[in-house]
Write a protein that binds this DNA or RNA. Structure first.
Lengths: 108, 108
DNA sequence: ATAACATATGAACATTTATTCATATTTTCA
DNA sequence: TGAAAATATGAATAAATGTTCATATGTTAT
């Protein structure tokens, strides 16, 4: 059957891009947490240090620090030291695009 | 301080859109699994029944069914009955856009 | 009606994940 | 140098998640 044939073509295509699709899921995983999303959205407005984020999200400094590590490992934020504090900001413009893309889906 | 002031402005903005940001994280959650991503990408090529998906992903029919429910609850796929089988397809064009957006981030 | 087929569902289990607590590290300033 | 401040890290715990197994539901064809 023709349908059968095209399904197996798709199967091959998926198998070929298996690693990419795993990476794609991993990328979405980084966005898939309310705390991280709020951190990212906040960083679209201004760079911030850990203490500021902790304060305005009203969660412990440790929790923020752990989540920032996830975001940094995922390549979504970068950091620089400024005296005693460490200032976080979005890694690049793509992050903003990803958020906008999701928001657009929500608001249809 | 001016920085202090702008941080508290951002805090208010985040608090105001709290529910939206929770929903945004929930949306990303639906994409945040390799099995679901592969199902979605497959569906960008052609609508498919559960058995086809199960076969080409080489996972049990039950697992596929469970994941399709997550995708459907999340509003990413829709289904229609065709005789004995149930055919799944992408819910709308936004899904494709979300995937493209993620892919673009990966391939920079 | 009943057998066969396709899909859905619920319970159980293992794995992952987010947070907290305690503590380590690094920098500033007295 | 030593105390204080800001951040990072590791272990522990609770909650969420994905898969499998067994079984239920719904559809077709005999």
């Amino acid at each position: 059957m023709d349908n059968k044939n095209s399904i197996s073509k798709i199967k091959e295509a998926i198998a070929r891009s298996n690693e990419v699709l795993d990476a794609l899921a991993d990328l979405y995983k980084v966005f898939a947490d309310a705390t991280r999303v709020k951190i990212l959205v906040a960083l679209t407005q201004s760079e911030m240090c850990v203490g500021d984020i902790s304060e305005f999200l009203e969660i412990t400094q440790s929790a923020v620090s752990h989540q920032l590590r996830v975001l940094k490992t995922g390549g979504l934020v970068k950091s620089r030291r400024d005296g005693k504090t460490i200032v976080y900001s979005l890694a690049d413009a793509h992050v903003r695009t990803m958020i906008d893309c999701g928001m657009q889906h929500l608001t249809e």
